[in-house]
Amino acid sequence: MSPLHPAAPVRPPAARLDVENLSLQFGGVKALDGIDLNVAPGSITALIGPNGAGKTSAFNSISGFYKPKTGTVRLDGEDITAVPARDRAKLGLARTFQNIALFRGMTVLDNIKLGRHAHLTAGVFDAFLYWGKAKREEMELRAEVERDVIDFLELDHIRNVPVAILPYGLQKKVELARALAMRPRILMLDEPVAGMNREETEDMARAILDVREEWGVTVLLVEHDMGMVMDISDHVCVLNFGRRIAAGTPEEVRNNPDVIKAYLGSSGDPRRAAEGHAPVGEVA
């Protein structure tokens, strides 16, 4: 496919993310209790922990869906704690969801295009006429999305398929594609390989590594699949009962006694523990 606009892809520089003393409460339940998290630019950082540890709560607070009780979230040093979720998208914070949150009534292509929404400017009158600005913008968007996202993630055979009929693994990939279309500086993936078989997991892991490689984007992910976490992350942060109990390289974390205790109650290997994590009751 020959791109219509052979300009260099717009790839904003990777950002760093610093979370400090983040606390979140639901009624009387402390979902997060003073979490610190530092994500270096261009790294792949994993947030792990048993069920109910507060990983998803942390994610939702960082992306602005939950209002944390205390703490700050900084993007490249800029405090974004008070910025509403929809404006964080424009700052380059893109995420996927644990339970796929695609727009089911739309095609793959339209879902991906939606990722660019915040960066486009056509107003309603341009839209009615589909002339001038609206048309130009849509054409550029299409070319860019095709070149940078659809080709890159090999989704071209399904671009006109409604997402609702795609298999699970592909839906996850489309969600990644939509996040990429947001031109992220930080890509937040909430359980990108949950429920996938081995082959799909490997495919996704490769895609994440490629994304980091090609786009130079910072990746923050929550994942239960310890095999994948240990394989691809540069840095791992472990939560338990809303607190951070360890942080470091995968190797350091794996040998940390607190982590072992959190996963097994006594001692053992978190790699095996992940297969049968006990349901503690998900907080969020």
Binding site: K90, A101, L114, A118, A127, F128, L129
Partner: peptide, 30 residues
């Protein structure tokens, strides 16, 4: 004109709100 509307970001935003309003907000749709 209505048909055109749904070829652009405005129309897509409408459909996004219909399908999943919370995630619409998180990808930057007001």
């Amino acid at each position: 004109a209505a048909k055109n509307l749904f070829r652009t970001r405005v129309g897509r935003a409408f459909i996004a709100i219909r399908d999943r309003d919370i995630s619409a907000e998180i990808i930057g749709i007001s």
